[in-house]
């Protein structure tokens, strides 16, 4: 039987703003299945996003939803989670939102290891504003502001998250649709900061300029270059050239921020040494 998305979508809020072939819709479906499989209650779940095409996602989903300002999702979400720890808090947004203007909030949320899940939709571009390069646009590629090819080096979002202290980090792609919900669900269940990077596509502003004229071409690229972490261990550096790893890249048990602050409260109230 086909999965019923309607029970999680807000009545009357579709159609969405995304272009035909945009990968963000695939991520939304994965997120909905993930939240469902974790049994999250609508009234007890906050979806917090920044600004961008990806960040429009919460408007469609029937949860407590907070569409903030460009780059600030993690900081708003930190306030929500601190003030109401019993809520499940999920951040959503694009590569530009999360790693450029919001990069500082992103790394500090990782460092605190606060119990949130951050789903970052990396389409390698600023989609909403018409395709300017982001910190994730591969070097040499074309964007509306890199007419001669992008001179900038790029961020590896997952490595950035691991380096900053996130305790669950996973990567998948819009092609691997069934893996999206599994990894997000694992991230939700993980106690601490979970980052799930989903590589997806923006046919309108990125594909168009970079010879992935069709969404199929982009999906093919995502499929061909994805290497599951298990398989990667048996591959040489040469074989891994130009590829990216998928699956759970990092997992660790470390003190979680809300629990740490609970100890502060206990101390302040004279209940602990």
């Amino acid at each position: 039987m086909a999965y019923d998305y309607e029970k999680s979508i807000r009545p009357g809020k579709l159609p969405h703003i995304w272009c035909p072939g945009c990968g963000h819709g695939i991520v939304m479906k994965g997120l909905i299945r993930a939240m469902d499989s974790c049994g999250l209650e609508k009234n007890n779940t906050a979806l917090v996003s920044g600004i961008g095409c990806a960040s429009r996602l919460p408007g469609y989903v029937d949860m407590c939803t907070l569409h903030t300002a460009h780059g600030r999702a993690a900081a708003f979400a930190t306030g929500v989670k601190m003030a109401k720890p019993e809520m499940t808090v999920i951040c959503l947004g694009g590569d530009g939102d999360g790693t450029a203007i919001g990069g500082n909030h992103f790394i500090h949320a990782c460092r605190r290891n606060i119990d949130m899940t951050y789903v970052i939709m990396n389409n390698f571009i600023y989609g909403m504003t018409g395709g300017q390069f982001s910190p994730c646009t591969p070097t040499g590629m074309k964007a509306s502001t890199t007419p001669y090819g992008n001179p900038d080096p790029t961020f590896d979002i997952s490595k950035l998250a691991i380096g900053a202290g996130a305790t669950f980090v996973a990567r998948t792609t819009a092609f691997h649709a069934t893996q999206i919900d599994k990894l997000i669900a694992e991230g939700i269940k993980h106690k601490g900061m979970a980052v799930i990077e989903v590589l997806d596509d923006c046919p309108t502003t990125y594909g168009r300029r970079n010879k992935f004229r069709s969404v199929v071409d982009m999906m093919k690229k995502l499929k061909e270059n994805a290497v599951p972490v298990q398989a990667a261990s048996k591959m040489t550096a040469e074989q891994l050239q130009g590829k990216f790893l998928t699956g759970v890249l990092y997992k660790e048990d470390k003190p979680e921020y809300i629990e740490q602050y609970a100890k502060v409260i206990a101390k302040a109230q004279g209940q602990a040494s």
Partner: peptide
């Protein structure tokens, strides 16, 4: 709850988020 955020923008964001709860 008291939290020292990474900058004033984050501080402002955190109080808005907390207020909404």
């Amino acid at each position: 709850k008291f939290i020292q955020m990474e900058d004033e923008i984050a501080a402002m964001a955190s109080i808005i988020g907390a207020s909404l709860t």
